[in-house]
Amino acid sequence: MLVFLIFRSRGGGRVLSALGLNVVVAAFLLYTLNLLSTYTQFELPINTVTLGTVTVLGIPGVLLLVGLKLTLL
């Protein structure tokens, strides 16, 4: 029902495209961080939780995940 309401409204396509772009940028950030793990010896998994956190929060979300991993593990 929620998807139907989003597509029915005028700005629904714009919202979905912005969300899709944010997910792609978040995945790229996490992939880049993992690519540099040979130099930093630090790695974050790319899963739905980390991807969602970085999608919503952006760079501060990456820093939050890094801080959580350093603190808890």
Rank of each mutant, 00 (worst) to 15 (best):
V54H: 07
L2M: 13
L2N: 13
L44Y: 02
S17H: 09
V62W: 03
L36R: 02
V3T: 09
R10P: 11
F4V: 15
T48M: 13
L21F: 01
L35S: 11
A27H: 06
L35C: 04
T53D: 02
N47P: 05
Q41Y: 07
L29K: 02
G11A: 05
F42N: 07
E43H: 14
P60K: 03
Y31I: 07
G20F: 12
L19S: 04
V24M: 10
L33E: 05
R14D: 03
G12Q: 03
I46E: 03
G13N: 09
L68S: 08
L21C: 04
L30N: 01
V25A: 10
G13S: 06
L72W: 15
A27I: 03
F42C: 07
T38N: 11
T50K: 03
A27T: 07
N47K: 06
I6G: 03
F42D: 12
T48Q: 10
A27F: 05
I59H: 10
V54A: 12
G61C: 06
N34Y: 04
L51D: 04
V25K: 14
P45M: 03
L72V: 15
G67S: 10
S37F: 09
L70T: 06
R14P: 00
M1S: 12
L44N: 01
V56K: 11
F4T: 13
A26P: 04
V62I: 15
A18G: 06
S37E: 08
I46R: 03
K69G: 00
L70K: 15
L35I: 00
L70Y: 13
F4K: 08
L73D: 15
T32V: 13
L68D: 11
V24T: 10
L44K: 00
Q41W: 06
A18H: 01
I46S: 01
G12H: 00
F7H: 13
V49R: 10
A26M: 07
L35V: 05
